Amino acid sequence: MARKKTILKEHILETAYLVLCAEGFKGFTARNIAKRMDCSTQPIYLEFKNMDELKNELMAKVYTYLTEEVYSCPRTGNRMVDFCLNYIDFARREVTFFSSLFLEKQIDACVLHEFSFQTLVDAMNKDGKAGKLDNEEKKQVFERIWPTIHGTATMVAQGSVSFDEDEVIDILKCLLPEADFIGTEELAYSDN
């Protein structure tokens, strides 16, 4: 009679995710993941061809987390402002995880940049005023604010500056003075 699998793909992915959050990619090894699961590396290689395949599936889980739990948390009522504040707050709350994704160069920076851009565009599309901008205008907005937002998040993660939500909102207003959609008026979030 064949033995029943006790360590499933989902368990391995969840453990790999926890390792990434806690230790970054420096802890992302089959041996380290297996140690946390209290098993050998064999179950990992039975479920995944190699560590690259595990990393690819892990990144799908990370993108879901960023989209659903980080970027989309309501704060001010303005989705674009919230996106920026949430990104910086993610760097403050989850320093190792943020650093592993956005600073360690273990993931293609162009892919992460495009993911962040697309997530911001999605947020803008759900906003009545920002949603009316054409694609080129949305790209220009992103290119204008992203260096400041990413730089601020990086400095927050390093501990060289503190996160002050009101200051970030003021910075966004200065970066985009012509954009009256950069407000903090209370708006109800809907799935539009």
Rank of each mutant, 00 (worst) to 15 (best):
S40Y: 08
T41E: 15
T41V: 14
T41M: 11
Q42V: 14
Q42N: 12
P43L: 07
L46K: 06
E47A: 15
E47R: 12
E47T: 08
F48Q: 11
K49S: 12
K49A: 11
K49F: 10
K49Q: 11
K49W: 08
K49D: 13
N50V: 09
N50W: 07
D52C: 06
D52A: 07
D52E: 14
D52W: 12
E53Q: 11
L54T: 01
L54E: 00
L54V: 01
K55H: 09
N56R: 11
N56Y: 12
N56K: 14
L58N: 01
M59N: 09
M59A: 04
M59G: 04
A60S: 13
A60E: 15
A60G: 11
K61T: 07
K61R: 12
V62K: 03
Y63S: 02
Y63K: 09
Y63F: 10
T64D: 13
Y65K: 08
Y65A: 07
L66R: 01
L66K: 01
T67H: 09
E68L: 11
E69Y: 10
E69F: 10
V70W: 01
V70R: 00
Y71P: 02
Y71T: 03
C73D: 10
P74H: 04
P74K: 08
R75Q: 14
R75S: 10
R75H: 10
R75Y: 08
T76E: 02
T76D: 03
T76I: 05
N78D: 09
N78C: 15
N78A: 15
R79D: 00
R79F: 00
R79Q: 07
M80Q: 08
M80G: 12
D82V: 06
F83D: 03
F83G: 02
F83E: 08
C84H: 01
L85Y: 04
N86W: 04
N86E: 10
I88S: 06
I88D: 01
I88R: 00
I88E: 02
I88K: 01
D89R: 12
D89C: 12
D89S: 10
D89V: 09
F90Y: 07
F90H: 06
A91Q: 06
A91I: 03
A91P: 03
A91D: 06
R92W: 05
R92E: 15
R93N: 14
R93H: 08
E94A: 07
E94K: 12
E94V: 04
V95P: 10
V95G: 11
V95D: 12
T96I: 13
T96Q: 13
F97N: 02
F98Q: 02
F98P: 02
S99V: 07
S99W: 08
L101W: 00
F102H: 11
E104K: 12
Q106E: 15
Q106G: 13
I107Y: 05
C110K: 14
C110D: 15
V111F: 10
H113S: 13
E114I: 14
F115Q: 06
F117Q: 09
F117W: 09
Q118E: 14
T119G: 05
T119L: 07
L120V: 03
L120Q: 07
V121G: 02
V121P: 05
V121K: 05
D122Q: 08
A123M: 15
M124L: 03
N125Y: 05
N125H: 06
K126Q: 12
D127H: 00
D127I: 00
D127K: 00
D127T: 00
G128V: 13
K129T: 06
K129P: 02
K129A: 07
A130E: 03
G131S: 06
K132Q: 15
L133N: 05
D134M: 04
